[in-house]
């Protein structure tokens, strides 16, 4: 059982959280295995979204934008659950590090923006850069706040 400490900053792994520090030596194959599996599933889902909503060289990369914002909403929700309810030691590595880490991507974000500049539409590049930052931060805060409220409601109903 692992209950992330209040001091956590990094959801992938935070060495100031004792359970995180110990997990790799406790079960290295299982931890790395579920991260690899989750990462592959997340990447496939991202590739599916990018194939379904392709964007022209001068167009706004909506698929990657949507994937990143959705992933930020979900990591906020996931970490809110894991902070209040104890879960198995592989839940955060699988869902957080693997699935959501593999689903969202920073490299495509940066390179898409670079391509928009190279394609002669720096305004679209700037809008994409700023919109992703704004939407991602709003999404993670919303995922955290809404899930926290739902958990509090359920906790209240149980008493």
């Amino acid at each position: 059982m692992s209950r992330p400490s209040e001091s956590r900053v990094d959801p992938d792994v935070d060495l100031r959280v004792p359970a995180d520090r110990a997990e790799l030596t406790a079960h290295p194959a299982a931890v790395l295995g579920v991260i690899a599996t989750g990462g592959a599933l997340g990447a496939l889902a991202r590739a599916g979204a990018q194939a379904a909503v392709p964007h022209p060289p001068t167009g706004f990369p909506w698929a990657t934008f949507g994937v990143n914002v959705l992933g930020c909403l979900l990591i906020g929700a996931l970490m809110a659950v894991l902070t209040t309810r104890p879960a198995g030691p592989l839940v955060r590595p699988f869902l957080g590090v693997g699935v959501l880490g593999g689903f969202t991507t920073f490299s495509a974000y940066a390179v898409d923006a670079q391509h928009l500049v190279a394609a002669g539409v720096p305004g679209t590049a700037l809008a994409y850069l700023a919109a992703t930052v704004l939407a991602a931060l709003l999404a993670v805060a919303a995922g955290d706040a809404l899930t926290g409220r739902l958990l509090a409601l359920r906790g209240g109903a149980a008493r």
């Binding site: 956590r8 900053v9 991202r46 880490g101 920073f106 931060l137």
Partner: peptide, 23 residues
């Protein structure tokens, strides 16, 4: 799509930023 996509992340970046802003 596979390696660079999974090596990098926006979800981790956004959550870290939320935690840094709060703590």
């Amino acid at each position: 799509t596979g390696f660079c996509g999974a090596l990098t992340t926006w979800s981790t970046l956004s959550y870290e930023t939320l935690r840094l802003a709060r703590t």
